[in-house]
């Protein structure tokens, strides 16, 4: 794995730390009066989003532009995809225009893997079905590390619809890779059918878990991904697994509240909880640009292999 970023499991702890270190450099670029460096001048990055995602696409696009890359947006709703063109033909058509990277989001797990087998350009997974969203996990790790320092030994509680969440899969791998311990809290139908091989523990008792939590990570209730209602009602979900003011008070003062957005205020998180000083949800968004700059730069500028050389030399 040097060309693509498909899964957090492609990285390992050392590479994750190195990407986070490098992200600090790009965060610095974001502070400048003119937040743009010529690092990827002459490189072209294409977006292939089969699912709507304004925030992730804008974040990647800002990152690419701050690196002076050219960008190409392949909008699925207005394209030949609606005329029945196959995924492979679409991808090869974009590749034929001369691109260096393609950022792929798709509702089906594994599509970025498939795309990576068809073209020479780097593939960045911007979310595939329920599978993974690796840059989200990296920006979450970056945000948590910025606030809490070393994450080894920290206790992370991930709450909500884990079964349908690519953010959860990437974050379980990411947080555990850097030495944090992860607890999943969800009703049974929203947990993956098997947790064999997952470095996590599971609880159904949110109140008991929160008192011993450094990072409380709330997932969006993915109503659109549930083929049928898996919990009796959103009201009951909120009562059992939502973070309201009382539950937020169970957290220590330094414990972070994180959410990948977009939030369902009043479902998994109450409105005023999201605005507390220890809720870092907007910081996550801001950090997303720097982390995605680091990822684009590593894949297109120097390559992840060089990262390994650097780590070996250090």
């Amino acid at each position: 794995m040097s060309r693509h970023l498909l899964s957090i499991s492609d990285l390992g702890a050392d590479r994750i730390e190195a990407i986070l270190d490098l992200s600090e450099k790009f965060a610095e670029v974001g502070q400048r009066k003119i937040p743009r460096v010529p690092a990827l001048r002459g490189k072209t990055v294409a977006w292939l989003f089969y699912e709507d995602s304004t925030r992730t696409r804008l974040s990647f696009e800002t990152a690419a532009k701050r690196l002076s890359a050219d960008t190409m947006n392949f909008s699925v709703s207005t394209s030949s995809v609606n005329k029945g063109e196959s995924l492979r033909d679409t991808v090869e058509t974009i590749d034929a225009m001369g691109i260096d990277a393609i950022v792929v989001r798709h509702g089906c797990a594994g599509v970025p893997h498939q795309v990576g087998g068809w073209i020479d350009a780097s593939v960045i997974n911007a979310g595939d079905g329920w599978h993974e969203h690796p840059t989200q996990a990296l920006l979450d790790l970056y945000t948590a590390r910025t606030r809490l320092g070393d994450l080894a030994g920290k206790k992370v509680t991930i709450v909500g619809d884990i079964r349908h969440s690519r953010v959860a899969r990437s974050n379980v791998l990411g947080f555990s890779a850097v030495g944090a311990s992860v607890t999943l809290v969800a009703p049974g139908p929203l947990l993956p059918p098997s947790l064999e091989g997952w470095p996590v523990s599971v609880s159904h008792d949110l109140d008991a878990t929160l008192a011993d939590t450094d990072i409380c990570y709330l997932l969006r209730m993915q109503q659109e991904r549930q083929k049928r209602a898996l919990v009796p009602s959103l009201r009951e979900f909120r009562a059992t697994y939502g973070i309201d003011a009382r539950r937020a008070d169970l957290l220590g003062d330094d414990a972070l509240i994180m959410h990948p957005g977009p939030m369902n205020r009043g479902v998994e998180i109450d409105g005023d909880v999201a605005d507390r000083p220890n809720a870092v949800i907007t910081e996550q968004v801001a950090n997303g640009v720097a982390v995605r700059m680091a990822v684009l730069f590593l894949l297109l500028g120097s390559g992840l292999d060089q990262l390994d050389d650097q780590m070996a030399a250090a």
């Binding site: 797990a109 594994g110 595939d128 079905g129 329920w130 599978h131 993974e132 690519r166 899969r169 993956p192 059918p193 098997s194 947790l195 064999e196 091989g197 997952w198 083929k227």
Partner: peptide, 21 residues
């Protein structure tokens, strides 16, 4: 099996693919 595309278990859970028990 509706919404399932592979055997439901360790691998489907890890791969994020809907499973058929």
């Amino acid at each position: 099996t509706r919404g399932g595309y592979m055997h439901e278990g360790e691998w489907s859970s890890r791969l994020g693919i809907g499973g058929q028990p």
